[in-house]
Every structure is written in C-alpha cells, then in structure tokens.
Write a protein that binds this DNA or RNA. Sequence first.
DNA 1: CTGAATCCAGGCGGATACTG
DNA 2: CAGTATCCGCCTGGATTCAG
Lengths: 150, 150
Amino acid sequence: MVLNPKIPEPELSYLPQPALDRIANMGIFDTQCEGHQLLEKIANKWTILLIYALIQGKKRYSDIKQQVVGISPKMLVQNLRSLERLGLIRREVYPTVPPRVDYSLTQLGESLSEPLAVLGEWAYQHISDIDAATKKYDSKPDAEDFWQPK
Amino acid sequence: MVLNPKIPEPELSYLPQPALDRIANMGIFDTQCEGHQLLEKIANKWTILLIYALIQGKKRYSDIKQQVVGISPKMLVQNLRSLERLGLIRREVYPTVPPRVDYSLTQLGESLSEPLAVLGEWAYQHISDIDAATKKYDSKPDAEDFWQPK
DNA sequence: CTGAATCCAGGCGGATACTG
DNA sequence: CAGTATCCGCCTGGATTCAG
C-alpha cells in the first residue's frame, strides 16, 4: 500500500502490551540464545502435529503414522527422536514379537501442549479472516501505486 | 527406554483434556485442511520472530533487519510478504527519497501475537528442563537395553 | 534505503528397500 | 511392527550484486 508523500499520522493501533512486556528483551532474536534455539526446534509443522496427536494419549508408532497423514517414516522417527531428546515425549519399547513401541507426552510435553493447542485454536478461528485477506491481496492489481509501475 | 517383556500397566498420566477437546477431530492432521495449511505457514522460525519484533510497534525495514539477527534480505522480504498476504501485517510505503517502508501488525496479527507470546514464554520458562533432559538423553549409553545391541 | 535478482550449496524430506 | 539405510530431487535459504 502506498501512501501520500507526506508522512501520515501513525494511526497508532493499540499495542498488545501484555505480550510486549513478556517477550521483549528476552534475547529471543539472538541465535545464540537458548530460548531462540528451543523455539526453532518446536516451531515446525511435524513437531506440532506429533504433539497434537499425543495429546490424545499414549499411542503406538503405527497409530501415529496413520494419524499424521502423509508423514514419511524418516520424518516420523526423526521428529520423535528430537522430541524424546528434548524430554517432551516418552518412548517405551516392549521387546515382544512383533515389537511394540508406545509414545506418550511427558509432563514437560503436556505443559507444551497447552500453548500449542491455543495456537491451533487460533488457526481454526481465523481461517475465514485469512482467506478474505489473501483473496484481497491477490486481487490487488498492484497498480493503485501512483508512481507508475513499469 | 526398554521395559519388561510383559506389558506394564499404563501408569496413565493425566490427559490434558482441555487441549484435547479443542484440537481433536478438527482435521488438523489432514494436509488438505485449511487449518493445517495455515498452521504450516505461521509455525516457522522467521515468521514467529517477525511477529515478535512487530509486537513492539510499527517498524521500518532496516530496523526489523537489525533486530532479527542473522536474517538475510531474501528471507526477510519473503516472510514479510507472506505475512502481509495473510493479512497479519500492514505495509506502508512512503515514496520519499530515500525510500521508507513501515511494517506493523494488523488487528489480525495482534490477535496472533498473543498465542505466539505464550509459546515464547513457555520456551523461556523451560530452558533448564530441556537442558537437563537433553543432557540425560545424550549421556545415556544406549546400553541398558538388555537385548544386547550389536 | 528497500528491496529484486541471481547464483549456489546444503539439507530437508519423500520414496523405496531392507532388517530384527 | 518398528524402524534403518540409501538414494536423490528439489527447495530452502545464505551470500552477493544490482537497481530505483
């Protein structure tokens, strides 16, 4: 969106001060910060979906694989291992034949499931908003710019 | 962790029922589901960091770039565009010379900042837990398995 | 100053086959 | 059943250069 050449008044929308207070100056923007690295590990699609799946309780490998549609065995194991290493999930092997492996959230993992559930809720509550915004953005002829594009 | 051959009692840890109720059966595991796709877009490192940065208020391109350490111009613009398309941030261009571009959260973006802030808080509150778990996992000789590895 | 464009390596991640 | 191993395409994302 292009505005008039003169700097407009900020039309300062209200700031979400609570969130600001909590996150600002925590070092999250620094790659070296542990919080940053931790966030990087949990903020990916498969990780979140696995947590979601295990919120429903202890599950076997094959059940998880069936529920999380389209995940390859490689990604499944890789992410499960990562979560286990972080202490978010528990892996229990029963040396029976055929073998059986159960995965479940640890207490730490359960504590993470709440924030992630909130995030998932947000997604579902705003699908239509996002849809509308995206359509509007895509239909914008990107003219309206008065500095003659091209 | 390997348990006794006989299937143990579940030691069923309490289920986080609230989260379960909210997320289960929402179709989140289906790639075709819009909620899934939306989650996929916002659940990545750069996106989250950009939202964090803009929680603090309207900022210029160069300020964001300076704050989000290590981001390349390519990733910065790419993610800013994505967020703008989703209607989460607002882009204001002042055709002055030198050019100036401000970015700020839209109302929709502000509504997302809360869940993301909660997630960031979680990360900082559990750094030591994760550290301990990771150390423990790495020091585990992966023996203790009684089926003689190798 | 704010990007756009290009190049390019690394690794993500899918597909497949195989094992205990 | 629950993975491991291997191959490999392709896309991500960094570095760099250039443009308006």
